[in-house]
Design a protein around this nucleic acid. Structure first.
Lengths: 137, 137
DNA sequence: GTAACTGCAAAATATTTGCATCCTT
DNA sequence: AAGGATGCAAATATTTTGCAGTTAC
């Protein structure tokens, strides 16, 4: 809870009920959350628009980042590393479980470097592994 | 062109103008395409719904696959390897250029293996690198 | 001729914007 | 008190579905 206020204050965001609740969800969730998850877990206490704006604000501030997915869903997860505004360092692998369908941040698994063809200048890399997670094995 | 008919026939799909045109786009494109790209490049000759259904059909048959992206866009690319229905083998890295915004399949760059935490069973991996491509450097 | 494919209309879903009101600092 | 955040309404955008007409085989 202390941590929660800390994060908001560090990012110069005013502390509101919606932001507290949504950030709390992320802090207590082992994996990533979709917009729909958040609406479900807040009992629609907040307007759908507020959720959109809160997520966008968190992304802008570098509190959360979005995770690449193959379908059209947008998933968000906490930036565990030191993310600054507009400069994310979420260089860890994400795992999607085919059974329970959860997305998990493997914070300890860093994305390996790859050798690119001549002329390509890499700036950022994303890696998503799917399969069966520890809980569902 | 021969190749084009080949692909459709191998997958037991009837040969129609829409499917030919869309598949042709993929065959002649160096990278991935979004739904919007396809509408643009076909001059809206086909109904939007037809594009949706054609893409879905191609994915189901394993002719194309979708590429994970961090924003909410859905990108599709040809399966260059031998993909069977419901069983893709597109284990190459995709590159998204920040300048020209094109997505390129780096067919020769294979996705490296990563060591996962205990209990995780990987089945499939996707990797997307962004930066500046050879043309825009 | 028959099954599959397409276009149109419309429904369902998702996201964005403007503005008045309320809350945080 | 002032600026930012929220809720509501409505505008946009995206995707899906049903059905009748058309096309491929």
């Amino acid at each position: 809870m202390e941590q929660l206020l800390d994060i908001l204050k560090k990012n110069q965001l005013s502390v509101t009920a919606g932001r507290k609740k949504i950030l709390e969800l992320f802090l207590s969730s082992p994996g990533a959350l979709a917009h729909a998850d958040i609406e479900k877990n807040t009992d629609a206490a907040f307007d759908r628009v507020t959720v959109y704006r809160t997520l966008q604000t968190f992304v802008d501030k570098g509190i959360i980042h979005n995770i690449p997915t193959s379908d059209n869903s947008i998933l968000y997860a906490l930036c565990k590393d030191k993310c600054e505004q507009g400069h994310h360092h979420d260089n860890h692998v994400h795992f999607i479980c085919d059974k329970c369908n959860k997305t998990i941040c493997l914070d300890d698994v860093t994305i390996p470097e790859v050798r690119l063809p001549k002329g390509f200048r890499p700036k950022h890399a994303e890696m998503v592994v799917s399969g069966v997670c520890d809980d569902c094995k």
